[in-house]
C-alpha cells in the first residue's frame, strides 16, 4: 500500500517531531548528568527511578538532591528560557520584518532587568508587586520607548525603517542598563560591585522547582500564542499593509503578540537574568532548517532554543573546570559571529 502525498507529509512531520523531541530529552539528560561535580550516570538514573517510578534505591540524599532539586529544574528552566526567548525573537522579527529584532537587542531584556531590580533592590511597590510583575512592566515600558523612538526617527514597521528600530533598541538597552546600575549603586551600601553582573549576563544557578512551575506554563503559553497566530505572522511577510489586506487585524495582532513577547521575556529575565542572542540567532537557524512558515517555524524555534540553552548551560559549567561561566558569555560567543553572518547575508540580499 502506498501513501498519498499528504500522508507522506504527515509521516515526515511526525518523524521530525519525534526527532526533535528526542533531541530535547537527550539535552535534558545531558543537563542532569553533567554538572559541577561528577556524579555517576547510574546514580542519576537511580535517582530518577526513585523519584519518578517510586523505586527504592538507597542513595546519598545530597546526590539525590543535587540531581532532582538542582540539575533537573535547571535543565527544565534552561529549556523554557531558550524556547521562550527564541519564540519572542521570532515573533519580533516577523512582526517588525527585521532580521535583527530580538528581545535583547530591542531593549526588552534590559527593561525587564530594570523593572526587576527596581522591585527587589529599590523596594518599589513596597512588596506588593512581585519581581516578575516588575520585570513585565519594565519590559513593556522599554519596548514602548524603543518603538516611539524608532517611529520618531521615521522607522516604524516598514521595510525601510529596519535600521532605526535597531538603533533605538541599542539606545534603549544602554539607557535601561544604566538605570539598573544606577538603582543598584544608589541603594547599595559601600560594597564592591558583586552581583551586578547577574542581571546583565544571566545566571541559571538559582533555578528551583517553584521557578519551573512559573517558567513552563509561560513558555507553553508563548508557544501556543505563536502557533495560534502562525497564519497572521505568515501574512506579515510582505508588510503590515499587505497583512491587513489579507484580513489580519494588524494593530490587535501586534499588541497581543508584542504583549506576549514582553510577558515571556519578562518572566524569563526575572528567573535567570537577561541572556542575549538566543532570540536573535535561534529563529534564523530554525528558518534555515524548516523554512519560513510559522506553523512549522514556531515549534522548531522553540525546540532548537530549548536544546541550545541547555547545551550552553552545560558548556558554561564544564568549559573551564571548577568554574562556572555566566551563560550569557556562552550565548554571546556563539551569537555574535552568527549575528555578523546575518548582517552580511542581509547586505547581499537584493
Amino acid at each position: 500500500m502506498s501513501l498519498t502525498a499528504s500522508q507522506e507529509i504527515y509521516v515526515s512531520r511526525l518523524g521530525r517531531g519525534t526527532l526533535g523531541f528526542a533531541a530535547l530529552v537527550v539535552a535534558v539528560l545531558a543537563g542532569i548528568c553533567i554538572g559541577e561535580t561528577p556524579i555517576p550516570v547510574s546514580i542519576v538514573l537511580q535517582t530518577l527511578a526513585n523519584r519518578i517510578f517510586g523505586s527504592a534505591y538507597v542513595l546519598d540524599p545530597i546526590d539525590m538532591g543535587v540531581i532532582w532539586n538542582y540539575r533537573l529544574p535547571r535543565a527544565i528552566i534552561a529549556a523554557c528560557c531558550g524556547s521562550g526567548l527564541a519564540i519572542s525573537g521570532m515573533v519580533l522579527q516577523s512582526l517588525l520584518r527585521n532580521a535583527l529584532a530580538d528581545p535583547y537587542l530591542l531593549g526588552i531584556s534590559a527593561g525587564a532587568s530594570t523593572g526587576a531590580v527596581a522591585v527587589t533592590v529599590a523596594g518599589m511597590g513596597a512588596g506588593a508587586i512581585s519581581m516578575s510583575l516588575g520585570a513585565f512592566v519594565g519590559a513593556v515600558v522599554a519596548f514602548a520607548l524603543v518603538a516611539i523612538m524608532a517611529r520618531a526617527a521615521g522607522g516604524g514597521v516598514t521595510l525601510h525603517g529596519t535600521g532605526q528600530i535597531v538603533l533605538a533598541g541599542i539606545a534603549g538597552s544602554q539607557l535601561f542598563n544604566a538605570l539598573t546600575s544606577f538603582i543598584i549603586t544608589k541603594s547599595a551600601n559601600a560594597e564592591q560591585a558583586r552581583g551586578i553582573m547577574f542581571w546583565l549576563l544571566g545566571n541559571l544557578s538559582g533555578a528551583r522547582w517553584p521557578d519551573v512551575w512559573l517558567a513552563v506554563p509561560i513558555a507553553l503559553v508563548g508557544l501556543a500564542a505563536c502557533i495560534w497566530y502562525a497564519r497572521a505572522l505568515d501574512a506579515f511577510a510582505f508588510g503590515a499593509e499587505s497583512a491587513s489586506s489579507l484580513g489580519i487585524p494588524v494593530r490587535r495582532v501586534q499588541v497581543v503578540l508584542i504583549g506576549f513577547t514582553a510577558l515571556v521575556t519578562a518572566v524569563m529575565v526575572s528567573i535567570v537574568g537577561s541572556i542575549g542572542f538566543v532570540g536573535l540567532v535561534i529563529p534564523h537557524a530554525a528558518r534555515f532548517l524548516v523554512g519560513v512558515r510559522h506553523g512549522r517555524l514556531g515549534p522548531a524555534t522553540a525546540l532548537i532554543g530549548a536544546v541550545f540553552l541547555i547545551t550552553a548551560d552545560v558548556l558554561s559549567r564544564t568549559i573551564i573546570p571548577g568554574q562556572v561561566l555566566p551563560i550569557g558569555v556562552i550565548t554571546a560567543l556563539v551569537g555574535a559571529p552568527a549575528f555578523a553572518v546575518i548582517l552580511i547575508r542581509g547586505r547581499r540580499a537584493p
Binding site: 558583586r194 552581583g195 547577574f198 545566571n203 544557578s205 538559582g206 533555578a207 528551583r208 562556572v324
Partner: peptide, 11 residues
C-alpha cells in the same frame, strides 16, 4: 558571605 539572589550560587 552573601548571594546576589537567594537561590543563586553564593559568594
Amino acid at each position: 558571605f552573601s548571594s546576589a539572589e537567594m537561590d543563586i550560587d553564593p559568594y
